[in-house]
Amino acid sequence: MSATPIATGRSTSGIPTGRLAVWWVIASEIVIFGGLLISYIMHRLAHGNWAEQAAHTSTWVGAFNTLVLLSSSLSAVLGHKAADAGDGKKAAKMLYITAFGALTFVCVKAAEWTFEISHGYTITSSTFWSFYYTAAGLHALHVIAGAIIMLIVAQAAKRNQHLNRVELIGLYWHFVDLVWIFLFPLLYIAK
């Protein structure tokens, strides 16, 4: 039997150290994604013609993926609620639903990119498309990483182990949702 890492549960700062660590990760990610998004906004404002390039992205596909992520955030927070109530099985079920949302998001994104690349809109087509693939790609990597961690946490939660981690992966997942909330209007709506 493996030892329980004490740092995930103890608290020297008013909140469990594991949760503090996730907030540190989120603070760092704000700089990463924030930097990318603000660079995009500055260039977009300086290059009016980017609107023509942005017109080729599908608002409906972006909206569908937004709905998927908002719904997966709901299942993640319901998993957190179940974990707080000590119901590991329900928490695991909610995390599996969230991971399914992540899978759906990535599949839609893959189909979307296949369509765009087949029509000649690649990462080297223009600076707009460079930003588009970089921002959406970096976000998709976070979605994939989150889904993998979620499945690992769900496996333990199913056996009522490490239920505090359900909240931690949920926090990360809500941040991934937040990033998409801003990527959606920037890449899919502002045309």
């Binding site: 549960g9 909206a63 909240e167």
Partner: peptide, 25 residues
């Protein structure tokens, strides 16, 4: 402090989700 400490306050998440979907629309 043990890992059982939880100080979150759960609300009506489905209602918040519904508002988010309306805002998306």
């Amino acid at each position: 402090m043990s890992e059982e400490v939880h100080d979150t306050h759960h609300g009506n998440y489905v209602k918040i989700w519904a508002i988010l979907v309306v805002l998306l629309a």
